[in-house]
């Protein structure tokens, strides 16, 4: 069932540019492009949260860091995507590696709090960078340039680039989860002490997973900055971290495709509710509570009729 849903969703996403051009509604390219970018961010969070039990409440930090890497380089006149994107991903990986050394020493509620603390630090760092927009954020005048290989200013090409990257991230995370590495990660989630007892240095595995997750979210950040042609502190506001969390849980943490479903549902729902009424949050809030209280496996769990495992972190 999960496989069928995944394939259906991906086919639908692939068809969006075609439909958008038929109905002459280029806006939907933007909307669904954003859906896929957040799907990548949610996949990265699911990697550590769904399989590693690490509930990060500061994942938007990577989204922002990746975006600012692109924005700052663009402002300094370096437009080449071949420089911008590796730097965005690399800086996120480095930030994840360094903060991971600290945050992974804690667990449970403390893990939630300390990831939040690091995200807040970055938030205030970028807020006070007056040179790069400060509070107001940074407008990116030119999208990343890939030397004629692909033109990001063309809506459909950019869309398919995001689509391809989404597929790649899905593939990577599916492969990782089923590998020995993923087994250790899932084992550490179920019972860390036992994993250590049978000889796995779980800390290293978790650190590696945290770093991969950060890097992947950094990619999403670079994409988001390019799409919005803007990056600002709001991208790494703590409520954004909350939104990514919601997407993962909404979709269901049990499977690889859950985050994609979750991101699509959350963004499309808030878009249509916002279209319906200015006060969409007053519907979205209670809806969220209902999902948490009654649909514990998320959408994936509802679809496949099984309860996804949501062990205490």
């Amino acid at each position: 069932m999960e496989r069928i849903v995944t394939i259906a969703v991906l086919i639908a996403l692939a068809a969006v540019p075609l439909l958008a051009s038929v109905f002459d509604a280029p806006f939907y390219l933007d909307l669904f492009g954003r859906v896929m970018i957040y799907a990548i961010a949610a996949i990265s969070l699911n990697l550590i949260m769904g399989y590693g039990g690490m509930v990060s409440f500061g994942h938007a930090a990577f989204l922002g860091l990746g975006g600012y890497a692109v924005g700052i380089l663009a402002k300094e006149g370096i437009d080449s995507g071949f420089v911008q994107w590796p730097l965005a991903i690399g800086s996120c990986a480095l930030f994840a590696l360094l903060t991971g050394l600290v945050v992974l020493r804690t667990s449970g509620a403390y893990f939630i709090m300390i990831t939040l603390a690091f995200a807040q630090m970055l938030f205030f760092l970028f807020t006070s960078l007056a040179e790069y927009g400060g509070d107001d954020g940074l407008t990116i005048w030119t999208r990343s340039d890939f030397a004629g290989l692909i033109d990001l200013n063309d809506g459909a090409s950019f869309y398919y680039l995001i689509f391809a990257l989404l597929l790649a991230c899905l593939g990577i995370s599916a492969r990782l989860i089923d590998s020995r590495f993923g087994m250790v990660l899932r084992g550490a989630k179920a019972n860390e002490r036992r994993m250590q007892a049978i000889g796995f240095p779980t800390f290293r595995y978790k650190l590696a997973a945290y770093t991969i997750s950060g890097a992947m979210c950094g990619l999403a950040g670079a994409l988001l900055a390019n799409q919005a042609e803007f990056v600002g502190p709001s991208v790494l506001h703590w409520s954004r971290s909350g939104e990514i969390l919601v997407m993962v849980v909404l979709g269901g943490m049990g499977g690889v495709a859950g985050p994609v479903l979750g991101a699509a549902t959350y963004l499309l729902l808030s878009y249509f509710l916002a279209d319906l009424t200015k006060h969409w949050a007053i519907i979205m809030g209670p809806l969220l509570i209902l999902v948490v209280l009654f649909a514990r496996g998320g959408l994936l769990g509802l679809l496949s009729g099984r309860r996804a495992k949501t062990d205490a972190p």
Binding site: M49, V55, G242, I282, G285, L288, V292, P313
Partner: peptide
């Protein structure tokens, strides 16, 4: 804790 964070952030929205 995850469920708690989500449900109470729903309350914030509301």
């Amino acid at each position: 804790h995850l469920d708690q964070v989500l449900a109470t952030s729903g309350l914030i929205l509301f």
